[in-house]
Design a protein around this nucleic acid. Structure first.
Length: 335
DNA sequence: GTATATGATTTGAT
DNA sequence: ATCAAATCATATAC
């Protein structure tokens, strides 16, 4: 029984006379050819005790037997019930959550899924420009170039894997089909083997996806992390912000609307305005003495503007405090 | 090269 | 959610 699943002995060259001789003139008891099941079984069981030539001869004779197909079928069933079921994989594996996560991310990043045309990506850049609205176009373009490079690599690798998987699978199928003439292999077993192969290959693909995700993340952190690619605001933007700050020194907390307006004027985002005021307040407070001259500078500038009637920014009624701003951040009004 | 300026982020409080 | 404060990481001045 234990020898049943083993591959057949390698085919040696046998002359027909050898076969005849071995088949009918062995020292073994049964001279009958394979024409009944018991005889057949006994001959198969005793094959391990025989010489290679004898075994070959038996095999040949067995292959000629009309009982062989039925016999193989039975063996296949037995195999099905024993060997294969033991290491039966969890048949319907749950869709790997990690794989799903990776797939989703790749699609979200535009690596996998439908190829992005110029239209959709320009829509994306328009979206980004709407929210950032500054001169990040260059970096963004660079980012997209690198991203498409990654995408290209990913797709070519994926295709290679797919190709290799298909090649290997069909090769194995052919091999097993061929061997199923010499040893009991059920179609179901072949299917299972195909599944195993696919699984192995998909685990390789998982690695590919993983490293692709990694590369995208690195790219993101390098190109989209604004902290790394910090750019100072334009001179005029800083001017506008400072004007607002020093003309509202008593309460340098622009409302949401004011922030929006400042953002618009400075071509930066609202959150950047918030950042700026947060930094400005804390840094102003930290050394009022040094900031004093800056305050005076802007105060005089504003005075000039007011005198000329240009003042686009109204000074708040409380701005008399501007000469001695005192630390009153704690007394700010809560919204 | 270092020192300072500056925009962004994190943390913790309210 | 918004703020102060500390901190990070880069830009710029020196």
């Amino acid at each position: 029984m234990m020898a049943l699943g083993a591959p057949p002995p390698p085919p040696l060259s046998l002359s027909s006379s050898d076969v005849k001789y071995n088949l009918y003139d062995t020292g073994v008891n049964e001279n009958k050819p394979f024409n009944d099941v018991n005889g057949m079984l006994q001959q198969i069981m005793s094959i391990v005790d025989q010489s290679l030539d004898e075994a070959q001869a038996r095999k040949h004779a067995f292959n000629q037997s009309r009982l062989k197909p039925a016999f193989f079928q039975v063996l296949c069933e037995i195999k099905e019930k024993t060997a294969i079921n033991i290491r039966n994989l969890p048949e319907d594996e749950p869709p790997d959550s990690q794989l799903m996560r990776l797939d989703n991310m790749l699609i979200a990043e535009g690596i996998a899924g439908p190829e992005r045309t110029g239209g959709s990506s320009s829509a994306a850049s328009a979206n980004a420009a709407a929210s950032i609205n500054d001169d990040s176009a260059l970096e963004h373009g660079d980012y997209r170039a690198k991203l498409s490079q990654i995408r290209q690599l990913y797709h070519s690798e994926l295709e290679k894997y797919e190709q290799a998987c298909n090649d290997f699978t069909s090769h194995v199928i052919n091999l097993l089909r061929e061997q199923s003439r010499a040893r009991p292999i059920s179609p179901r077993e072949i299917d299972r083997m195909v599944m195993i192969i696919r699984k192995k290959f998909s685990s390789i693909q998982l690695q590919l996806k993983q490293s692709t995700c990694e590369a995208v993340m690195i790219l993101r952190s390098r190109f989209l992390d604004a902290r790394r690619k910090r750019r100072n605001f334009s001179k005029t933007a800083t001017e506008v912000l400072n004007e607002y700050f020093y003309s509202h020194l008593s309460n340098p907390y622009p409302s949401e609307e004011a922030k929006e307006e400042l953002a618009r004027k400075c071509s930066i985002s609202v959150s950047q305005v918030s950042n700026w005021f947060g930094n400005k307040r804390i840094r102003y407070k930290k050394n009022i003495g040094k900031a004093q001259e800056e305050a005076n500078l802007y105060a005089s500038k504003l005075a000039n503007q007011a005198a000329q009637g240009i003042g686009g920014i109204r000074r708040d009624s409380d701005s008399s405090q501007q000469d001695k701003p005192a630390r009153k951040s704690r007394s700010r009004v809560k919204k």
